[in-house]
Structure formats: structure tokens, C-alpha cells
Write a protein that binds this DNA or RNA. Structure first.
Lengths: 212, 212
DNA sequence: GTCTATAGTAGGATAGAC
DNA sequence: GTCTATCCTACTATAGAC
């Protein structure tokens, strides 16, 4: 059946990227992973790049959707850290972040991959941004933090950490732990009394004025 | 001359990775960029991967050395941000972060690239860690922040940002701006009076105990 | 050390049988 | 829709002339 083969190719493309990286992926390795004939890559998708683009789109939408409800339930920074850690571990286990990292690397010199990878990363950014906005509402941190920018930084950082993990697993775990600990600082600030918070906000505003 | 050709190949390798990515780099593209014959890649380095490894090593040592004195002169967070921004812009202009990102992507499925890329990233981590340790000494932030872990997180994040920049330049700039602004929070905390700082430190310690 | 030439392999893509 | 067969290109790597 056609739809079945298409799906096998989409799955095979992800598997091949996980296993061989962008540098080693080809119509042949994808077809092998999918258990179908090599010519079908071109029949169904036209070219290897277009198949990779489609696979990236499909995989990311599916994963983001799977986490949307969990993220929407997040109300505190502590919740966010819990969901974030679960999300990171699961995506890593499924190899999805790796695929995104590899395709981003490929997109740097393959224009046809730019749009799909940007869109995929954009889907994650969207979710993270909405969640951060909700969680940090009213916090003094919201005075300093540019939340849309922060959501983008977090997304990019996870890609970098994934690549780092591949060459130094201990170092990457260390880095991840440090980021989680850093969130404690935000909690501490949020737990300050009203008076101290107001003083802090004032200080922050003064700094920002000076800075510009 | 031999040493001249070796150098041309090392430079050519970096140029080729910048231009074609790991996925598109080959003995031929490197030789073309170096303006030498393709067979010399194998004569001087044995294989493409070994040349890439050597180029990665050489380039990173050179760049880290070039920044070591500037980083050692950093005494405040404001200094660090200034040097950090200059460093980031220059490395980006030279395309060095891109090379590291591409080789990290390649290393995920090419074991021979693991050691050189880990070492290259390690050189940056070393510098950043030493600088952070110096700058944050005595700050309440040092109570929460696991500095070695943070140095690793920062290094990995820059790699991710570089890849992000390739598919969404505006988003990446936004992210970078957000991270710089976040540093203001640290400054604010550092500028608190003695009493407030002591109170904050105590709060942080309590949090950490609870957390474990 | 550097070049030419070439063997051998892998990949993109298409034509045509089924 | 799927498979076989095939063309063409680009690659790694080496042998051998200079």
C-alpha cells in the first residue's frame, strides 16, 4: 500500500539520520532502514532532501503535540523543570533531538533543509515560550528576562547539548545539572517578600536604563 | 614545500567544512579550497577524517590561545559580557564555531572525530570555567551555580546557537540578546547590600537542602 | 613531495518491466 | 506502486611517473 510505504520511508529516514548522521544518510541507507526499495524514495518524495524535510516536519509535529497538554498543565517553575527533564529524556531516548541537530547541521549548506528545520525548531520554541510566559508572569525575573528570546535560547541550547553529549556524555550531564540548579536562583527570588521583590524590581529597572 | 602544503590543507579543510558542511566535505572539496592536488590529502594525513581531526585541533588551539590573555584580564561580569560578545562575533565571523558544530555533528556517527572534537570543546570549556570561577568568586550566585557545569552548558549552548543562526538569524540574535540581559539579574544580586546578600545566601542554602 | 591516472565503491536519479 | 537494471557522477585510496 502507498501510505504504508510512505510511512515506512518517513520512519526509515529518521532512523537513518540517527544512525549515520546527515553526513552518512542516503537514499540507500534510508531504504535499507525502511525495508523497501531504494527507487521508492524518489517516487514518493522526489529527492532525499525532500524526504528528510517531510520526516522532520512529521516527527516534530507529532512530538510537540504529544507534549502540548503536559506543558499546558505547568503552573510553577518546579513543574516546568519536572516536565522539562522528562521531555528531554524521552526525546533523547527516541532520538528526536539528534535528528533535529543533524538536520540543522545539514541545513547550513543545504538551503532546502532550512525551512523545515526552522519550522520544527519553531514548534518547540512556541510551546516553550507560552509555558515560560505563564510560569514567570508576575515574577521579578520577567522584568529582566526577554521571554521570547529565552525560549529560543533554551531550544538552541538543547540542540547544542545533544551534540555535546555525543562526544562527552559526562560533561553534558554536568551541564544539564548546572542549568537545573540555576533555576533555584529564580525560585529564591520569587520567594522573597513583597518589599524585597519591589526593591529588586526597582534595581533591575535602573540597571536596564543605564545599560541602554 | 611540505609544511606549506600541510598548512594549506589544514586551512582548506576548515574552509570546506564551513562552505559544504560535514555532509558535503570530501578530499576533493578540501583540495580545491586549498588549491592543491587531491592525492595530497592522503599523502599528508592518511584520510579525510584524520585531516579534519588535525584541522580541528590546530584551529581551536590557535583561537583559544588568541583569547586567553583577554579572558585572563576579565574581572567583572560586565567585562566578561564584553569580551564574550567580541569573542562570539569574531569566532562567528571566522567561521570557527561553525566548524566545531559541523564536526560535532559528524562525530555522532564517526568515532574517529569524537576525540578531537571533545578536546576542542574542552579547550573552550577550560577557559570559560577559569574565567567564571574568578568573576563569580564571592557572589551569592556561586552558591547556586555549579560553575564547571555552567561552563560546559555555555559552550554547548553556543554551538546550538550557531546552528540555529543558520536557519533563523533573527531568532538567534534574539536568543543571544536574552542571555545577555539575563546576566543583569546576576549583577543586581551582586549589587545588593551585605545584609540582603547574606539573607539571599541563606535562602539559597535552604532551598538546596530541601532539594536533595 | 607532488602530479596523473586509475581501480573500486557508493550514491542520485531515471527507464521500463511487472 | 513496486521492483530491476542501469547510467552517471563523485568519492576514497593507491600506484607509479616525475
Amino acid at each position: 500500500m502507498s501510505t504504508d510505504t510512505r510511512q515506512r520511508l518517513l520512519d526509515g529516514a529518521l532512523a537513518a539520520v540517527r544512525h549515520h548522521g546527515v553526513a552518512g544518510v542516503s537514499a540507500r541507507t534510508i531504504a535499507a532502514a525502511a525495508g523497501v526499495n531504494q527507487a521508492l524514495v524518489f517516487y514518493h518524495f522526489g529527492s532525499v532532501d525532500e524526504l528528510l524535510a517531510a520526516a522532520c516536519d512529521a516527527a516534530t509535529s507529532a512530538r510537540v503535540e504529544a507534549y502540548a497538554t503536559q506543558l499546558q498543565a505547568v503552573r510553577s517553575l518546579r513543574d516546568l523543570l519536572d516536565v522539562g527533564r522528562r521531555l528531554h529524556e524521552e526525546e533523547r531516548r527516541l532520538g528526536n533531538v539528534m535528528v533535529l541537530a543533524q538536520l540543522l547541521a545539514g541545513a547550513q549548506s543545504e538551503p532546502r533543509l532550512v525551512e523545515p528545520t526552522a519550522r520544527a525548531l519553531g514548534l518547540w520554541v512556541e510551546q516553550i515560550e507560552a509555558t515560560l510566559t505563564r510560569v514567570l508572569a508576575g515574577s521579578p525575573v520577567a522584568e529582566v528576562a526577554d521571554i521570547p528570546g529565552l525560549a529560543r535560547a533554551v531550544s538552541a541550547a538543547f540542540v547544542g547539548l545533544e551534540l555535546y553529549e555525543g562526544v562527552d556524555a559526562d560533561g553534558a550531564r554536568w551541564a544539564l545539572g548546572a542549568l537545573e540548579q540555576l533555576a533555584v536562583l529564580v525560585e529564591v527570588v520569587d520567594d522573597l517578600g513583597q518589599v524585597a521583590q519591589r526593591a529588586l524590581k526597582a534595581k533591575v529597572r535602573r540597571k536596564r536604563v543605564v545599560k541602554r
